[in-house]
Write a protein that binds this DNA or RNA. Structure first.
Lengths: 212, 212
DNA sequence: ACGGGAAGTCAACACTTGTTGGCAAACGGG
DNA sequence: CCCGTTTGCCAACAAGTGTTGACTTCCCGT
């Protein structure tokens, strides 16, 4: 991929013995760029979020963005790191997983503008869509697997759960439908909880005929 | 601001007595432009769908697009005319509205690429988001009002229904999650039907505190 | 048949985009 | 102190965008 130039782990650990990241003095600039990039990507999407605008927000020159992140795609990859921090649903009372999932999802989404950014980008760029698929595969599927007994049904159930969660995020945080944006968190939990619960744990409703 | 020039009703009616549209001889070109525009907007989104590419698909010059539709926004407005053709849910057996809505939604979406186009555009442009709000307000809200007794709950319930339907469209037709794209129509109807049914007709789950 | 207007083509404009290379400071270890 | 490295800015490039106007070609009513 890149040289050993642009990729720096998201620091935080400090003073460890064998420090792999020597804490360059430009770290504040890098952080400013990432912060501005996240905001722009979240509010404008990939195409409309120009490097020049991001650089202006970060109060530096556009060429710095290129130096530190290679190109626009690299910047997006560095700025958008998704971690849903999903809890271990297996450790919860089985009848509460739907509500717990809804509540957790709302909290994470509202505390992390990156999620809206990725959703916006996913709708228009293939790279964004594939990245979203990665989040689904690496973070949602495993959690669903913990509550769903039949492994064969896991992908479909996870997809249904995701469709409802992303649909809510879309109408509430991206499209900003007034009724969707006006609901309180607990109202949403009360409505979506049973839906997710059913998608996760209810028996397959394939009763009358088997298609194909 | 050229009004009486570019706007022509979406033709189809032919030979009416007092024809306000004299059926110009460029109608086939106009149709070709709209067709190409719909495909490009659906697959690429608003920004990446360039007028040049649309014109190339329609095998005409880019300037024709400008002459007939004014500018890119006008072309989008002309190309994306949403009609969900929602049936009268009040005329159905009350326990079937959820499934019927899901089935109808799938049929309309898969037969009309414009819907995917609008969804893609809505995620990145404010104009697209507002247009989607218009569809919600003019086409979904009235239908929900027919099955929901309490007028005060109509917007919230409609928003929930929309969140599930758009979420499915997003994962299935835009992001193309393999599990979501692989489901059959009837499977989706079987899963989403009860969800929509509950959003439409179930009593308000207003008491989230449950004795555990 | 002829003339006016519509249909369509060609080339260009003004602008923005991502991206690049050169050059001036600031820093920090020897 | 001095010199290599880092940090940053400036100007510019090539490519692509929406958009415009002048020009030719075709159709059709009179």
């Amino acid at each position: 991929m890149h040289d050993s130039d642009t990729d720096r782990g998201s620091g935080g650990s400090r003073g460890s013995a064998a420090a792999p990241a020597p804490a360059r003095r430009s770290d504040s600039t890098r952080a400013a760029i990432l912060h501005a990039a996240r905001e722009r990507f979240a509010s404008d999407g990939y195409e409309r979020a120009t490097i020049r605008a991001i650089a202006r927000d970060a109060k530096i020159d556009p060429s710095m963005v290129m130096r530190y992140y290679g190109n626009k795609e690299g910047l997006f990859a560095a700025a958008v790191a998704i971690d849903l921090e999903l809890p271990d649903l297996g450790a919860l009372p089985r009848q509460e997983v739907g509500r717990a999932l809804a509540r957790h999802f709302l909290a994470v989404w509202e505390g992390n503008e990156v999620l809206t950014a990725l959703l916006r980008v996913a709708a228009t760029s293939r790279a964004g869509a594939e990245r979203t698929q990665g989040v689904f595969r690496d973070q949602i599927l495993p959690v669903v697997r913990q509550v769903c007994p039949d492994p064969e049904q896991v992908p479909a159930r996870a997809a249904l759960v995701t469709s409802q969660l992303l649909g809510l995020a879309l109408t509430r945080y991206v499209l900003r439908f007034p009724p969707a944006a006006g609901l309180t968190r607990e109202e949403i939990v009360a409505w979506l909880g049973p839906t997710l619960q059913r998608y996760l744990t209810a028996p397959h409703p394939d009763h009358p005929e088997r298609p194909s």
